[in-house]
């Protein structure tokens, strides 16, 4: 229980800064409005005004909270205005992209660790692939795939895969190479086959590395999905909510979509963490 106090203190401080920021950023507009109506605002009126605008530059926390509540609990989840609906659209693509990305990442890592040629030829490309800004390449992927009749789910999942395979590859290469020369020699003294060495030594050794990179990958997959949703005409998904919000100056909607995405990312990382704990417990990694 004692550990909750510092967390709450930090949270309270952040919210206080946020409210102060809302006053600073929205004050101009509030004053202009008052001027037009020939009113003069007292300081307290001004502050209240800045926290309750329809299209504030920076919405106040309670406005975002109310919007979040309205769009998750109050709306039916099948509604196009439900954040749960948009969250699910994003989540399903994120999970697909994450699944493909993790599988591709692991496969590449195994190939790189077991083949010198792959190590020399593929690894530089893997790294180079991540230096291309995803914002630049995402629309091209969408356009190219659209021209061969693919749209919607798969192009977005491919962008998510593109972002999420990389941390898995890097982490798994490191993990599969974690066994010491001594441990590998030991396998040799038992005349173990390559497959036995992989399954009994390299793979278990790589688990801590794998889960660390999976946590990064799942967050990257979510980012990839949201970016993939931006150029698709903004039909559905958290990315679409962000884009629609910015078209119409709906800052409250943008912020609530951002928070939705943040909560989703946190939940996904948490889920990977739970999975990690189950697997490592089961494997018997101590403590």
């Amino acid at each position: 229980m004692r550990s909750i106090v510092p967390i709450l203190t930090v949270l309270a401080a952040l919210i206080a800064i946020w409210y102060a920021g809302a006053v600073a950023l929205n004050a101009d507009w509030a004053r202009q409005q008052a001027e037009r109506q020939d009113r003069t605002l007292t300081t307290s009126e001004l502050i209240v005004e800045t926290w309750n605008q329809d299209r504030p530059r920076l919405p106040a926390p309670h406005q975002v909270a109310v919007e979040l509540w309205d769009t998750t609990v109050e709306k039916k989840i099948t509604s196009k205005r439900s954040l749960v609906y948009h969250g699910w659209v994003t989540l399903s693509v994120t999970l697909a992209g994450f699944g493909f990305g993790a599988a591709l990442g692991i496969a590449l890592a195994v190939a790189i660790v077991y083949s010198r040629t792959m190590d020399r030829s593929v690894m530089p490309w893997v790294i180079a692939s991540q230096t291309i800004p995803i914002l630049a390449i995402a629309p091209m992927i969408i356009v190219v795939l659209n021209s061969i009749g693919m749209q919607g789910f798969i192009p977005k999942a491919i962008i998510a895969t593109y972002l999420s395979f990389f941390p898995v590859t890097v982490g798994m290469v490191k993990g599969l190479r974690a066994p010491s020369a001594m441990q590998l020699d030991q396998m040799k003294t038992w005349n173990a086959s390559g497959l036995q060495g992989f399954l009994r030594l390299r793979l278990p050794s790589s688990m801590p590395y794998l889960f660390t990179s999976l946590k990064i990958a799942v967050a990257a997959s979510l980012v990839g999905t949201i970016i993939g949703e931006l150029p698709t005409g903004a039909v559905a998904g958290l990315g679409a909510r962000l884009l629609a919000g910015s078209y119409y100056g709906q800052t409250v909607q943008i912020w609530s979509a951002l928070f939705g995405a943040a909560v989703l990312a946190a939940l996904l990382i948490l889920a990977v963490g739970v999975f990690e704990r189950i697997v490592t417990r089961h494997m018997g990694f101590g403590r």
Partner: peptide, 25 residues
């Protein structure tokens, strides 16, 4: 072959570690 370091697998019990070469064989 006994190496300088015990080199037991941390994810296996003592029994599991001794079983390792037996499983392989």
């Amino acid at each position: 072959y006994v190496f300088q370091a015990a080199g037991l697998y941390p994810w296996r019990t003592i029994g599991g570690n001794i079983r390792l070469p037996l499983e392989i064989m």
